[in-house]
Amino acid sequence: MTHDWPAAHTMLDHNAATRGGLRRLNLAMLLPPLAAVGALLVAVEARTWWDAAVLTLSAAAGLLAVERWTAGDLARVALPCLVVTAAAWPYGVLVAGSDSAAYGIMIVGPLVIPQLPRHRRAATLALIGFVAAVGAARPLVSGDDAGALVGYLLVPTGVVVMATGLNVANQRFYQLIQQSREREAELAVMRERVRFAGDLHDIQGHTLHVVKLKVALADRLMDDDPAGARRELREVRALLGETIAQTRELAHAQRRLNLSAELENAKNLFEAAGIRVRVDREAEADPRAGELLGQVLRETTTNILRHSRAERVRITLAERGITIVNDGAPDGPTPELRGLAALGDRVAGDGGRLRVEQRDGRFETAAELPRPRSGVVRPATRKDDR
Rank of each mutant, 00 (worst) to 15 (best):
A7S: 14
L12I: 07
T18L: 14
R19F: 10
R19H: 11
G20V: 04
L30N: 01
L31A: 10
V37L: 14
L40K: 09
V42T: 12
R47P: 02
R47M: 09
R47S: 15
R47K: 15
W49D: 12
W50D: 07
L55W: 01
T56S: 15
L57Y: 01
G62D: 00
V66R: 01
W69Q: 08
A75M: 04
W89A: 05
G92V: 06
V95K: 05
A101I: 00
Y103C: 05
V108E: 02
P110S: 03
I113T: 01
R120A: 00
R120L: 00
R121W: 06
A123D: 02
A126T: 06
A126D: 04
F130A: 02
G135K: 08
R138M: 11
P139Q: 11
V141Y: 13
S142K: 13
G147C: 05
L149T: 05
V150N: 03
G151Q: 13
V155C: 06
P156C: 04
P156D: 03
G158V: 02
V159S: 04
V161N: 00
N167C: 03
N167M: 08
N167K: 01
R172Y: 00
L176N: 01
Q178I: 00
S180D: 07
S180E: 09
E184P: 03
R191I: 02
R191S: 09
R195I: 07
A197I: 05
D199T: 15
D199M: 15
L200C: 10
G205H: 04
T207M: 15
V210H: 09
L213G: 07
L213F: 06
V215A: 13
A218H: 07
D219F: 06
L221M: 05
D225I: 05
P226R: 05
A227G: 03
G228T: 01
R230G: 00
E232Q: 14
R234F: 01
V236C: 03
L240S: 11
R256Y: 13
E262M: 08
E262T: 07
E264I: 10
L269E: 13
G274N: 03
G274Q: 00
V277Q: 06
V277G: 07
R281Y: 07
R288T: 15
L293N: 06
V296D: 09
L297T: 06
T300W: 07
T300Q: 10
T300C: 08
T301G: 07
T301Y: 09
S308A: 10
I315S: 04
L317K: 04
L317F: 02
E319A: 14
R320S: 05
I322E: 08
T323W: 05
G332M: 08
T334R: 12
L337W: 12
L340G: 06
D345G: 15
A348Q: 12
G351N: 08
R353G: 12
L354F: 08
R355E: 13
E357Q: 13
R359D: 11
R359Q: 14
R359H: 13
D360M: 06
R362A: 09
T365Q: 08
A366I: 04
A366H: 10
P372R: 02
P372I: 02
R373Q: 09
S374E: 11
G375Y: 01
